[in-house]
Computed example of a mutant assay.
Amino acid sequence: MINPIPKHLRKNKQQRYKLLMLAMVVMLLLSITLAVMIGPVPISPLRVWQIALSQVFPNVTGDWTQAQVQIVWLIRFPRVLLAFFVGAGLSVVGVTMQALVRNPLADPFIFGISSGASVGAVLVILFGIFSFFGVYALSLGAFLGALLAFVVVFFLARRQGRLFPTRLILIGVAVSYMFEAITSFLALKAGSGEATQGVLFWLLGGLSGTKWPDLILPVLALLVGCSYLLLQTRSLNALLIGEETARTLGIDTDSFRKQLFFVTSLLTGVIVAVSGVIGFVGLMIPHSVRFLVGSDHDRVLPVSLLLGGIFLIWADVLARIIIAPEEVPIGIITALFGTPFFIWLMQGFSKCLGRE
């Protein structure tokens, strides 16, 4: 049997991938450092890491002030790291959804998944639903809302046992508007107190006030979700090609889709619970990554995770400084980047369908 890809070309491709991953890790470390440095009180990069190391290793000492410790370790570091985990999670969800529904425009925001999660979270915030779960009530409400939205979109888009890309887009947008209307109605019914104002800001996405405990659940969800998905890259590749191909390779597509429903809803719900609704990250990043490394999920997933995290770190920096000392909701920043990207992608998608 003749291998269609010569050995030396495969080796060069692997070397380029390793160099890309190394470059991404370096970019991540630089992004974290610069994002922690930037703010009303500028702090040198050396001081940033000295303070960080002193919190991990008590024997590290220096001449920094307690105020600098609070700014670096208690305010900026957890916020920057949460931005990374949120961006990484949204990107991974976008990659998975695009394989699951075989639609290049799939994204938790466009398909209404984030809006469904926001309804569940708002019910918890305003009315105390699931309050007996304590600190996990918000994540549970968001997860159930995301799962409900995903199931509604998926089953309404099916026709004669098949998924149609155009129906997915239209129904996803319609479901998104429906859940956004429900969220707005709930916020209006709750009155004009601080909780309602917080909900309105949170619906546009925001990472302000992040504390270290806020990272625990997103990190756990991302570790579990990504570990599972990385073990399923072969199945994701087959599903992206086509359902018949996947079945030919012995994949139980119905069971696999249900598992992907659960994982994507879990990740989206946890992310929305800590950051609010942030759109277009799951759309932009996977397509950018496929341009760099191709469509093999063995490479798309790790690179998307890193690039998505780096992107959202810088989106959050812009949100903090663009009209300082006020703060712009991060969802506005991602929409400014994502809307032109979506229009460009939609034009290409229309050409493929012959609908121009």
Rank of each mutant, 00 (worst) to 15 (best):
H8L: 11
H8M: 05
L9D: 02
L9N: 08
L9H: 10
K11L: 15
K11W: 07
N12C: 03
N12H: 13
N12W: 13
N12D: 12
K13E: 10
Q14N: 13
Q14P: 00
Q14A: 14
Q14S: 13
Q15W: 13
Q15T: 13
Q15D: 02
Q15G: 00
Q15P: 00
R16S: 09
R16C: 01
R16G: 08
R16H: 06
R16F: 07
R16Q: 14
Y17L: 13
Y17C: 06
Y17A: 05
K18A: 12
K18E: 12
K18P: 03
L19V: 04
L19E: 06
L19S: 09
L19H: 12
L20M: 13
L20C: 08
L20F: 08
L20A: 00
L20W: 05
M21A: 14
M21F: 12
M21Y: 10
M21N: 12
L22R: 04
L22I: 15
A23V: 11
A23N: 11
A23S: 15
A23W: 03
A23I: 05
A23F: 07
M24A: 15
M24F: 08
V25Q: 09
V25N: 11
V25I: 15
V25K: 11
V26Y: 03
V26M: 06
V26A: 15
V26L: 15
M27F: 05
M27Y: 00
M27W: 02
L28R: 00
L28G: 03
L28Y: 08
L29S: 11
L29V: 14
L29F: 15
L29K: 10
L30S: 15
L30V: 14
S31P: 13
S31F: 02
S31T: 05
S31W: 01
I32S: 02
I32R: 00
I32D: 07
I32P: 02
T33D: 05
T33Y: 06
T33S: 03
T33H: 08
L34R: 01
L34Q: 13
L34G: 11
L34A: 12
L34M: 14
L34K: 01
L34I: 12
A35E: 08
V36F: 01
V36C: 06
V36D: 06
M37P: 02
M37C: 12
I38A: 09
I38E: 00
G39R: 04
G39Q: 00
G39W: 06
P40V: 14
P40R: 01
V41G: 05
V41L: 09
P42I: 08
P42N: 02
P42F: 03
P42W: 01
I43P: 04
I43F: 04
S44V: 10
P45Y: 14
P45K: 00
L46C: 02
L46W: 10
L46H: 09
L46T: 02
L46G: 05
R47M: 07
R47L: 05
V48H: 03
V48W: 01
V48G: 03
V48R: 01
Q50W: 06
A52E: 03
A52V: 09
L53D: 09
Q55A: 11
Q55C: 09
Q55T: 11
Q55H: 08
Q55E: 08
V56E: 04
V56P: 02
V56T: 14
F57A: 10
N59Y: 14
N59C: 06
V60Y: 07
V60C: 00
V60N: 01
T61I: 10
